[in-house]
Design a protein around this nucleic acid. Structure first.
Length: 568
DNA sequence: GTCCGCCTGACTGTCCTCGT
DNA sequence: ACGAGGACAGTCAGGCGGAC
């Protein structure tokens, strides 16, 4: 059924696909197409089945001349049609390539081959290969390599796609709170990626940004081999709230999954989508399918951005535990990539991820700087809800920083909070800024990211005049963390105060949880100061007798109330 | 302050592939 | 042959931000 046309030094083979399908009631397989190509190259004894190839039965091809070039462009129609063919099955392509080694021993062929379809019509579609037999002396192995690379890998991308390995997430469960890196340089990095990007990014000599803070001197560099060029700069500019999510996700997984001290884990891109609360697409029967390739690619891009970052720290104090078990601070200077990633060989979406040396110091051991962040922060849409995201990230960090002194309820100035969201946002209309900030805080409260928020002192009558925005910016907010944060951070022991007997505050925490009360309200009811109550509940302040009595009275009152409601 | 285009994600239906 | 898994295009909703 194959037909050959000779013209000058060329040989053309036409392969009528439709006829083939009709005759054999199936579509041609990979090795059969290779047969066609091989025949066109002058090899006519390729009548093998896949099993014969696999069993390595000896073949005796009769090549006449070596060398060929392939020049071919696939039209849209051909791409569409090829997509419907199962031209190649698992691994068989590699087998045929191996076979070329055998051919090389005995044979050499020559010529130029043009591979293409004769007609762009589904019924008469033909695969044609035109071979120009003029040049000489290129081993068959090379020809087969060209076949493999230029035809299979480039011209038939959809074939490779269909053989793409199955990607799955490695995490099955996301807790309400993710583990979160709270080292100052990580927080600086998060801010740089989002709110301060336009202000601080510079691209001189690989340095992306430089920050001198109370905590130390940080330099963020580009670590890719190509150095800084336009492409890299464009990539770096792509860092945004999503990059922060990916960073937080990676850190959570490093802390959750790594068992060894070098903090290395296997991570699937799907894990990061899962942490972001993305749902996999469904199939037609409503059963969960997989994530879209575009979703995975997006995450991949941000993961690679992180892997290209290098951190240089000088004069930063990092916490260490000395030989006596006491917490001390050491001056730290060093440079390392933020994270190391290495693609898992058989799937583009799996990576071995390792924390860079500097990050690792802040994540492991008793001196670790880690905290908790509500999973909702990662789930918020980085386009629609970036206000909530940035406030959430900042609060998670500030709460962990305040854990030591337990001053969770110290008021935050609105201006400070807005700086976390980004200076550029302050240039917008004042009323919309106030609305957006208040909406964000209400949303965070609804989602239990914060327990409660209120203005410390607000006089609406002052907020009417000409300079109301400036006055409003200086107002303070009291933002209360959820009870889970209090519980978790109260477990972190202050090493120096081991011997101090603590007040049992867990009873109050239980009541708060059950009745969904806010600490601000309890402070009012008990007539204790917010700051004092917060300190007691987190185990950092030992209440004096009067405070103890106030709390005890309150607890008794609550229990009585409880009994009263049960009675009814 | 309002309008409108842009961007993003959720959802849905269709088609294809693969394993049993 | 059949069912489950996966890709993909189309549609819709809603926040953001610029123009007026």
């Amino acid at each position: 059924m194959d037909s050959y046309i000779s013209c000058d030094d060329c040989k053309i083979i036409s392969f009528p696909l439709k006829e083939y399908v009709n005759t054999y009631k199936k579509e041609p397989e990979g090795f059969e197409t290779i047969n066609v190509i091989a025949q066109a190259l002058g090899c006519f004894c390729f009548c093998l089945t896949a099993s014969e190839i696999l069993e390595n039965i000896e073949i005796k091809p009769s090549f006449q001349h070596p060398e060929c070039d392939f020049i071919y462009e696939l039209s849209d129609f051909e791409k569409k049609y090829l997509k419907t063919l199962s031209i190649v099955r698992k691994n068989k392509l590699f087998v045929s390539k191996n076979y070329a080694v055998n051919f090389e021993k005995e044979n050499a062929i020559s010529g130029k081959a043009f591979i293409g379809f004769d007609f762009a019509d589904e019924n008469s579609l033909k695969l044609s290969i035109k071979v120009d037999l003029k040049n000489i002396n290129v081993p068959v192995l090379d020809i087969m390599s060209v076949l493999f690379e230029s035809i299979w890998l480039e011209l038939f991308p959809q074939i490779n796609k269909s053989q793409k390995p199955y990607t799955q997430k490695t995490l099955n469960y996301i807790p309400d709170y993710l583990k979160f890196a709270t080292a100052p340089f990580v927080q600086e990095l998060r801010r740089l990626m989002t709110s301060e990007k336009n202000k601080h990014f510079s691209f001189n000599d690989s340095v992306i940004a430089e920050k001198i803070t109370n905590h130390g001197h940080y330099v963020f560099k580009n670590d890719s081999e190509d150095g800084i060029n336009t492409q890299i700069i464009n990539q770096l500019r792509k860092m945004n709230d999503l990059t922060v999510d990916v960073l937080n996700g990676v850190v959570h997984m490093l802390l959750e999954k790594s068992k060894t001290s070098d903090m290395e884990i296997l991570l699937s891109v799907d894990d990061l989508l899962f942490i972001r609360g993305k749902r996999a697409s469904k199939n037609q029967k409503g059963i969960r399918g997989g994530y879209k390739d575009s979703q995975r690619q997006e995450i991949l891009e941000h993961l690679k951005l992180l892997a290209n970052l290098k951190i240089n720290i000088s004069n930063a104090y990092i916490p260490v535990i000395d030989v006596n078990g006491k917490r001390n601070y050491e001056l730290y200077t060093g440079e390392s990539p933020l994270i190391y990633i290495e693609n898992s060989k058989d799937n583009d979406y799996y990576f071995h991820v390792k924390a860079g040396e500097i990050l690792a110091v802040t994540l492991r051991g008793t001196a670790a700087k880690t905290g908790l962040i509500h999973k909702k922060i990662a789930e918020y849409d980085h386009y629609r809800n970036f206000w909530e995201k940035r406030i959430g990230n900042y609060l998670a960090w500030i709460w962990r920083s305040r854990q030591n002194k337990a001053d969770f309820l110290v008021p935050l100035t609105i201006d400070t909070l807005l700086n976390q969201i980004g200076e550029e946002n302050k240039l917008k209309r004042p009323q919309s800024i106030r609305n957006r900030l208040e909406n964000a805080l209400y949303k965070l409260e609804n989602d239990n990211v914060i327990k409660n928020w209120e203005y410390k002192e607000i006089d609406e009558s002052v907020l009417i005049g000409k300079n109301w925005f400036e006055i409003w910016l200086k107002l303070k907010l009291i933002i209360e963390p959820p009870v889970e944060i209090f519980e978790e951070y109260s477990k972190i022991k202050k090493i120096r105060n081991k011997s101090v007997a603590r007040f049992d505050f867990h009873e109050i925490l239980t009541i708060i949880k059950e009745k969904n009360l806010s600490q601000i309200k309890i402070a009012e009811e008990t007539r204790l100061k917010n700051e004092v109550l917060s300190g007691i509940l987190s185990g950092k302040i030992l209440p004096n007798p009067s405070e103890k009595r106030k709390l005890q009275n309150w607890i008794t009152k609550q229990i009585k109330k409880e009994e009263g409601t049960t009675w009814q």
